[in-house]
Simulated assay, not measured.
Amino acid sequence: MRIAAIADVHGNALALEAVVAHIRASAPDLIVNLGDLVSGPFDPARSADMQIALDCPTIAGNHERQLLAGDTGFSDAFARPHLTSAHLDWIASLPGTLELAGGEVFACHGSPAGGDLEYLLEDVSSGRPTLDTADAIGTRLAGIGKASLVLCAHTHIPRIATSGGVLVVNPGSVGMPGYRDTTPVAHVMEAGSPHARYAIIDRLARGWAVGLHAVPYDFEAAARQAEQAGRDAVAYSVRTGRMPPA
């Protein structure tokens, strides 16, 4: 079984187009979309159309919840007027988590135990992400049933880790390689390069094999979209994979 995992498109249709083309060459059995689909200063409507057309298992991230709730944060407020009622109906239909492959795979946006805003693998108390302890990660894995593979997102940082015999894979962000946040403390997330990220996971006789992929695309065109929306910091991250100095 071969699974392609994508996450955190954030409305970046140019990045998504490149990733989907790269994925198709790998001929996966399944594509899984881990949420934060359209909220971002790029092309929300086209990215929504593309993700709907994938017709793949898709979960809602925190931005889907916030978008539907009328959140006034910039990314959600920017996306909302670009979306049709059909787009919003699709978003409203999405579950928060999924069990796949007969329960062998659990998909979530944040963490299984803590919801769509909790980082599963990272400790950000220093202001930058570091891999958390296996015990801390294990606590956040409560509720995955018999799954041996957990797919998560939210941090935009590609990472693979294990805890208690469970493999956890974060494919990174398709469309937004960096951001700043203030919850749970002020911190910055940076992928380190502007590439669009995704993962391929293969079921082998001895367990799961994982490939983290970084795909080039027209970074400059996406950065200009962000600038036209008034989001210079996002444009900087799309060009560099890092955030501008605070």
Rank of each mutant, 00 (worst) to 15 (best):
A147S: 07
A147L: 04
S148P: 00
L149G: 01
V150F: 05
V150H: 01
C152Y: 01
C152Q: 04
C152G: 00
A153G: 02
A153M: 03
H154C: 02
H154T: 01
H154G: 00
T155D: 03
T155M: 07
T155A: 13
H156M: 06
H156W: 00
H156T: 03
H156E: 08
I157T: 03
P158M: 06
P158G: 13
R159P: 00
R159Y: 06
I160S: 03
I160Y: 00
A161W: 09
A161L: 07
A161I: 05
A161G: 08
T162I: 06
T162F: 06
T162Q: 13
T162V: 13
S163G: 13
G164W: 15
G164R: 13
G164D: 09
G165D: 10
G165I: 15
V166L: 05
V168N: 10
V168G: 11
V168P: 10
V168H: 06
V168L: 15
V169I: 05
N170L: 07
N170Q: 11
N170M: 04
P171R: 14
G172C: 04
S173V: 12
S173T: 11
S173M: 06
V174R: 05
V174G: 13
G175S: 05
G175T: 08
M176V: 04
P177Y: 09
Y179K: 09
T182V: 12
T182Q: 14
T182N: 11
T182I: 15
P184D: 14
P184H: 14
P184I: 07
V185M: 03
V185D: 00
V185H: 05
A186M: 12
A186R: 15
H187G: 08
H187M: 07
H187W: 14
H187F: 11
V188Q: 03
V188C: 11
E190G: 03
E190W: 02
E190V: 00
A191C: 00
A191N: 01
A191W: 00
G192V: 02
G192F: 06
S193A: 12
S193R: 15
P194Y: 10
P194D: 09
P194G: 06
A196V: 04
R197S: 13
R197N: 15
R197H: 15
R197C: 14
R197L: 03
